[in-house]
Design a protein around this nucleic acid. Structure first.
Lengths: 212, 212
DNA sequence: TCCTAAAACATAGCAGTGCAATGCTATGTA
DNA sequence: TACATAGCATTGCACTGCTATGTTTTAGGA
């Protein structure tokens, strides 16, 4: 057999162009259809199939984009000497990211579409796990606290809050419940109550919500 | 002869027939389209418009159906002399209902569709509020505990858990995190730790998950 | 440099979608 | 009997994602 010659090379720019355009249309609440996605650009409808394999592939890429942005936001969070505060700050970053991109956030957890890179999505949770681990190592949490379990529980609170607020029935101020919920959780795994309240409240100040 | 005359008045049975059929199609993961919804029945596509005003109306009715079933499930929960346990049982009922009807659950919080009867949806939260109120009145919780706030926080935990499990990436066993999360929350508003653990663990035994 | 095979593309068209317009039928009222 | 009204079947339209077909472009070997 002759060697597989890669004849014409795909242009990565086209791929990101379409993803960014799709994200933009999502942001301004325009319905994303095959034809509306390529309208105005100089790419044809078939390009969507060569680059993404179909509209499902576009949504998959979009879902990945959601995790990419979340990871980028997590990466901006600097660690301090207070790991409980850091964990809280990570949660506020999670909430801020979800409210900045509510439509992307909704896609992120739409199990109808697979992820292109499952590991990258899982890696975002690792930020929370690390902060929980540091809290345990510095004796803020009980020694038998499972960092992954605590990270998941924190995540559950954040997801519950933000999904009821971003695309749900609760008003934005409800996000404030994150303070008592996280405080109760952290105290329950051993943190000193007064110190915990301080850490969470200080961390919570990092919450940045989009303008309304 | 009157025997072959067709009634021209709106038949409520047609409405429930279509809703039940839509719910059934949702359950077996069949796509719900205008034509597929009426296929097999003796109602025409236009009937969907006279009864629901369009496919959006069908989804609205379906969303309402989700709250109706949740309310029905809540109604089966009998109150005991332990309001904290009762509150936990209500949460397990919430989780059980969501996992019995994961597709309906997803529709319930899809803000793309309005609700026909917003009050009926709000009323379901009232079950939780009442249990929280009884916990406060029996001095399980601090006197200054706001029952609505605590109910909403419990709801947030339940929703976060179940939405990450039912249509999300977490395995079913993750639901078990409900025990430590609720316990931490109830203790944080004043309940006696040991007594709280007993109440939550006892209440959690009422969790009924669908067979897999 | 030229040739060839395969990748990428453009076009047209298909089956399927929700929905509106039209006109018919059955009922209620005068 | 005459008319008004409500429900609904039929038809057709604008749109969807997608595919079949033919053309263009490009990489790699001779």
């Amino acid at each position: 057999m002759y060697c597989d010659t890669m004849a014409r090379t795909k242009d990565p720019a086209v791929r990101t162009l379409l993803i960014e355009r799709a994200a933009h249309m999502l942001r301004i609440r325009e319905p994303i259809t095959l034809r509306s996605l390529v309208a105005g650009t100089d790419v044809s409808t078939m390009a969507v199939y060569t680059y993404f394999g179909g509209m499902d592939g576009v949504w998959k890429a979009l879902r990945q984009e959601g995790f990419t942005r979340l990871a980028a936001r997590f990466a901006t969070v600097t660690t301090s000497e207070d790991p409980v505060q850091d964990l809280t700050v990570l949660i506020t970053a999670y909430l801020g990211n979800a409210l900045d991109h509510p439509d992307l956030y909704r896609v992120m957890f739409d199990a109808n579409f697979d992820l292109e890179d499952l590991k990258a999505a899982d890696a975002t949770l690792e930020y929370l796990v690390q902060a929980a681990e540091r809290s345990r190592k510095t004796h803020r949490f009980h020694a038998d606290t499972d960092p992954l379990e605590l990270a998941t529980q924190s995540w559950t609170i954040a997801h519950g809050l933000v999904s009821l607020v971003a695309n749900g029935p609760l008003p934005h101020q409800t996000l404030g419940y994150g303070v008592p919920l996280l405080t109760a959780l952290f105290i329950s795994v051993g943190d000193n109550p007064d110190r915990c309240r301080l850490s969470v409240e200080n961390g919570w100040k990092q919450l940045r919500l989009p303008d309304e």
